[in-house]
């Protein structure tokens, strides 16, 4: 059972977080709020989203899992006005969720939970290096790299005390570094990993709206981006597997 109301901007932001990676997900509803974890079909990237009950203007729920068609949600969200209120209503054991906003009352069929991929195990990896930068700086560097290449390296040089991003195209090269004084937070450790810009462009667009994005990196290991949404009442983590250099 779910009966809740939420600001449309927060709901839209949450859907965008998921849509950057997956087309459907299992959403766990509990008295504490919403949570979900999903991997993309290529098993290269993972998203986890937690939206606490505090992110909603009113929230009353019992434990249940629903299958959400993210593509469909994206289309509906596009109909919503900014800074409006969205009411969600799901009866106990219901297969349709009622979504009401600006006079519209949608009754949306949910996906059968059993047809949606099971939650992946939570990651258990150690990423020693950490920096915190603004989402817009991060997204700009991704866009800059995409002009010359289809992959980007993130790295930390602990001796120089810098965080850097670097991309190599067939002919061109781009390098961008941030000294630790320009970073919100800096945990130095020898780190450098290469990532596909195809994925990062989609994730970067979402992260660009965040003031602070934590980047956790290691040596040829996945990268973890962590940031908050909904004024800190929601937490997002993206995990992206690295590429290795071609021989």
């Amino acid at each position: 059972m779910l009966k809740a109301a939420i600001n449309t901007d927060i709901f839209k932001e949450s859907i965008d977080v998921m849509a950057a990676m997956v087309t459907e997900c299992r959403m766990h509803i509990s008295p504490g709020g919403f949570s979900t974890r999903a991997v993309d079909t290529a098993n290269v990237a993972m998203v986890s989203l937690e939206l606490s009950a505090g992110a909603f203007s009113s929230f009353d729920a019992t434990e249940s899992d629903i299958g959400l068609d993210i593509n469909k949600m994206k289309n509906i969200v596009a109909m919503m006005e900014k800074d409006d209120t969205l009411s969600l209503d799901l009866p106990e054991g219901g297969h349709k969720i009622e979504m009401s906003f600006s006079g519209y009352k949608y009754s949306i069929a949910l996906l059968d939970v059993n047809t949606v991929r099971k939650d992946p195990n939570p990651p258990t990896i150690n990423l020693p290096g950490k920096v915190v930068i603004s989402g817009s700086v991060l997204y700009n560097s991704i866009k800059a790299a995409a002009l010359v290449s289809d992959k980007i390296a993130f790295g930390i040089d602990p001796e120089k005390g810098i965080f850097y991003m670097e991309a190599d195209g067939d002919m061109d090269h781009i390098y961008y570094e941030l000294p630790k004084d320009d970073l919100v937070s800096f945990v130095p450790a020898e780190a450098r990993s290469l990532f596909s810009l195809d994925y990062l462009k989609d994730l970067g667009r979402v992260m660009s709206k965040s003031d602070q994005v934590e980047i956790h990196i290691g040596m040829d290991h996945p990268v973890k981006f962590a940031f908050s949404i909904a004024d800190g009442k929601g937490n997002v983590e993206y995990l992206l597997a690295p590429r290795i250099e071609a021989d």
Binding site: P120, P123, S196, H221, A241, R243, I244
Partner: peptide, 14 residues
């Protein structure tokens, strides 16, 4: 072919 050679999967790590 290049992606299959160079793109790691999350399952390679945990």
């Amino acid at each position: 072919l290049l992606d299959m050679k160079t793109q790691k999967k999350l399952s390679d790590f945990f």
